[in-house]
Simulated assay, not measured.
Amino acid sequence: MDEHGPLCVGIDPHPGLLAAWGLGDDAAGLREFALRVVEALGGRVAALKPQSALFERHGSAGVAALEEVLGACRGTGTLSVLDVKRGDIGSTMAGYAQAYLADGAPLAADAVTLSPYLGLGSLAPAVELAHQTGRGVFVLALTSNPEGAGVQHAVGPDGRSVAAGVVDGVGALNAAGPAAQGLGSVGLVVGATVGPAVRELGIDLAASRAPLLAPGFGAQGAGRAEVTEVFAGAERAVLASTSRAVLAAGPDGLLRAVEDATAEVRAALGR
């Protein structure tokens, strides 16, 4: 983020975007779409974030395209965050970890998104492998979808919300992790449009030492007021995620769209 700015661009080959780019809604179309994004933006943003589901829906050919896209990210030196939101237990979680975080794995990314709702401890295989291979994970904490609050804001027997427990647990993992200071390798997903939830739930994002993957910028409209409300004191940790606001500019407008989005995010974060 210090070198390329605080922007993460999603690679989301939705059918509508493929059509707008003049591409077919098939594996060949999404492959061309995604590789154009990598070619245009590699080395110009902090990270690129392929949405795995939009590749998986095209079966084995779509997954093969995803492998190629992740390899292309590595070729540009740009960090990849694979948005898979996996969460399971035991050997199944270990399998997911091997798929996405092991050296030499075809789908290896620099980081993945994980769901902690089978218990944060269930993610241990992924966290441990990420530490071993120098990769990272982003754990869902406070998401911007309205349905998320019913689970994330729920209060347990200890009087703490589920989201607060996730943040506290991630903070403990970072305290015990390989990075003695600065940001840890276990991040959090916190929507930039969650409003007063962080304050009302008594959450201290800065204390977690977590990188903060923050959807909500761009098309969802998060600006300075929303950032101040959600990330006060932790702005330096925010990796702002946007997709539609950049991708809708089309292949010829990507660079200008990224420049505009980066300026807007920097202004919102005071960076």
Rank of each mutant, 00 (worst) to 15 (best):
E147G: 15
G184V: 07
E67T: 15
D12Y: 02
V166C: 03
V151W: 10
G119Q: 10
G59K: 12
A163W: 08
D26I: 01
V38M: 12
G119A: 10
Q132G: 13
A126S: 15
I11T: 02
A172I: 03
D83V: 03
A111P: 01
T113C: 08
V198L: 05
P15K: 04
V258G: 01
L123W: 00
R57G: 02
V38W: 10
D204H: 02
Y100E: 14
A219W: 02
G43V: 14
Q181E: 15
H14L: 09
P251I: 10
E200A: 14
K49M: 02
G250L: 12
S185V: 09
P15L: 01
A97I: 11
A249W: 01
G134V: 15
L254Q: 04
G59H: 11
L129H: 05
A257Q: 11
T228F: 00
S60E: 12
G90R: 14
L82D: 06
L23K: 00
T262G: 15
A268G: 07
G59W: 12
G253A: 12
V45P: 03
S60Q: 04
D168C: 01
F33I: 09
G90Q: 13
S161I: 12
V137Q: 02
G165M: 03
V189W: 02
A257D: 12
K85S: 08
R244D: 12
L107R: 10
L17Q: 06
G5C: 04
A61Y: 04
S115I: 05
A245G: 15
L142W: 03
V81R: 00
G159H: 06
L212D: 01
G223V: 01
G216W: 06
R74N: 08
R266C: 14
S161V: 11
A225M: 03
V265C: 04
L239Y: 01
E3L: 15
G62Y: 00
